[in-house]
Design a protein around this nucleic acid. Sequence first.
DNA 1: GCCCGTTCAGCAAGCGCTTTCTATTGGTGG
DNA 2: CCACCAATAGAAAGCGCTTGCTGAACGGGC
Lengths: 408, 408
Amino acid sequence: MAVTLADVATRAGVSAATVSRVLSGNYPVAGATRTRVMRAVEELQYVVNGPASALAAATSDLVGVLVNDIADPFFGIIASAVQGEMGTGVQGGSGGQKLAVVCNTGGSTESELTYLTHLQRQRAAAVVLTGSGVEDEKHGAALATRLRRLAAGGTRIVLCGRPPLAPPGQKEGQESQEARERGQDHGQGQGQEQDPERAHGREAARTPPDEGEPAPAPGDGIVTIAFDNRGGSRRLTEHLLSLGHRSIGYVTGPADRTTTRDRLEGHRLALRAGAPELLAQAEQFTVHGGAYDRSSGYDGALELLRRVPDLTAVLAANDTVALGICAALRDQGLRIPEDVSVAGFDDLPFSADASPTLTTVRIPLHDAGARAGRLALGRETPPPGGVATVRTELMARGSTAPPSGRRA
Amino acid sequence: MAVTLADVATRAGVSAATVSRVLSGNYPVAGATRTRVMRAVEELQYVVNGPASALAAATSDLVGVLVNDIADPFFGIIASAVQGEMGTGVQGGSGGQKLAVVCNTGGSTESELTYLTHLQRQRAAAVVLTGSGVEDEKHGAALATRLRRLAAGGTRIVLCGRPPLAPPGQKEGQESQEARERGQDHGQGQGQEQDPERAHGREAARTPPDEGEPAPAPGDGIVTIAFDNRGGSRRLTEHLLSLGHRSIGYVTGPADRTTTRDRLEGHRLALRAGAPELLAQAEQFTVHGGAYDRSSGYDGALELLRRVPDLTAVLAANDTVALGICAALRDQGLRIPEDVSVAGFDDLPFSADASPTLTTVRIPLHDAGARAGRLALGRETPPPGGVATVRTELMARGSTAPPSGRRA
DNA sequence: GCCCGTTCAGCAAGCGCTTTCTATTGGTGG
DNA sequence: CCACCAATAGAAAGCGCTTGCTGAACGGGC
């Protein structure tokens, strides 16, 4: 039905092997032959059969990108940065091109796992997990196990915007046993001896410098690009404190997310260091938002105002929430920043041109995503220890100012 | 290396064929056997090798979703609706589950084609193209050809939110021939007559009855879910006219996009019908925005104000642009809707809780996406003629009101 | 003039799974 | 009691591509 390699070979008057080699471009082929083959390919509009080639070569050109919310620019920016790295840095041949596919988990641990299964089934070349992870004991373990299995199978794993995986617990139950068994089988039967080259090639690629040791040091080869949420949040709160605020509300993100926790912790750290007297009532000043969305901010601000009428500043889990807060405050007749200061987190594009411009913490999402992409492709050497933390930067803008004292 | 079907078979004491059948569940297998196999699968943590099975079965479980801007909720909503349909309606077996992968074209025709190549290579089960297409003669032809080839190869094609493909020109031949035609087009310039074909195609699509010809009329199996942008836009303008506005600005979307054109056309149609005297200066009241984003609206509004100081209403290409317009107007000290009315398009979630709530035109994006997903899976019978147009609905809200007369 | 190193192309063996066709049952009706 | 059929399971032939190995042709050095 479809055009096959053999068809092209016939047309070009060569063998299928030669066509394959011309297309992958990793084998010497005489110029004339190459030209003839390319012409045949053109004429026949030949397109490689991905599954077949993936099967034969035991590689795939799929790279999965898991995001919590496809409609959130936070993820959109990361995802497109990752995609941007996929087609680059290769010669003419269509080889080397990867297909980045973004999978929308909707923040559900279940579909996260489902997608991983799909990607594993496709033998994806790499998987990039973005955004905050869910802090659930059970899920965390399941996820870690799964990721390590994937990594062991040759899929590169990159975490972007979430903390590194916890080291494998001592429990793991049957899983570990299974794994162990399988490992043994391999060693003896078809394992390393079967295709020492491939295995070796992979190792070499992963650890150019340090090798020699049998044990993969920080090991499993899972790379992490963490965001310094805590530090950024801390600096943000310090900024507010230094402006003179002492009545600072906080609307968090959804519970059980690493990002939510880290940002809140940073906030508390700043309080502890700069205004310990506020710590006692900290919980009173904290509203736990249900999501990283606008309405969460709107409702949170209202709740906060109810609890603390003389509020002079509100911190948000992220920029989107901050915008919701702004809306709520305005609806209550409060001016920003004269009556209440507001600050967000992430520095998404719209924050700079909101009115007033939003004070926030900038995360270099694009850079982080691009780096994640390169790591996923193995085009960049992993950071020492397998973990890199990207710096965050306070962007003090129009939405924060000293408390006017006019209220309260 | 990885666990294979054969491993499972050995462990379960059956043949590989049996395991395969148990997993795909489309063949009678004795209960006891099935149980044994399932247990072995569990114990070995077996995951099917996608490429191998795709190769053998000549099918794939990939469904591609092409979007113009992954960070825009418009696409996010459609994409997640499509994804939502993927895993549904199947029994226990992991069969039937498809993997919806979203590919971000960034609105570039080039990467649209690149992604299609990738998906063709993967032998994707279906491809859903969302959002406005680019109105470029050359690209349009290339795209149509490509899509038809894909469709011919068994990949289901669904267009969601863009007009149906132009019928295959009499050409289709070699590149050279297309090039020739292009040359002619250039020579003549680009008047309205430039794409008579498309216009005709649309007509035909709208009127399924007229057919009868042997030609595979709606044929190629490519299904379209079009949005009634023109009608919605027209109703929106009618709304403004009926409120008494006579000085109505319009900030368009990016040039050469079907959606941009259709919405503007709807607007002009309403003017022609309801206030023909305004048509003469229509171009004066129209600012051509560069993108469907906020800053495009902000800048557009400023420009409009410069040209037409006594503006009483502004229509935006979409909601995001409308928000930018609102920001600009506010920054100019104008109140909405007292001084100027503003309206958007799409009715994205944030529009309902903006302040003031935004008058807009609702497109059932979720429903449309879900339907596209079902069509892609072949779980819903295509509409007659292969084209369905989803209705749009005027949502009159707080951002529009009668002109106050206070200004101008 | 012979031998060997190069270069380039073909052969053929799989990759792991699906699926057709065939074999082995155990039951049934005549 | 035997031929026959339904129900299951297995054997084996690919699916289209990659790649190790073999082979042919050519050139240069001794």
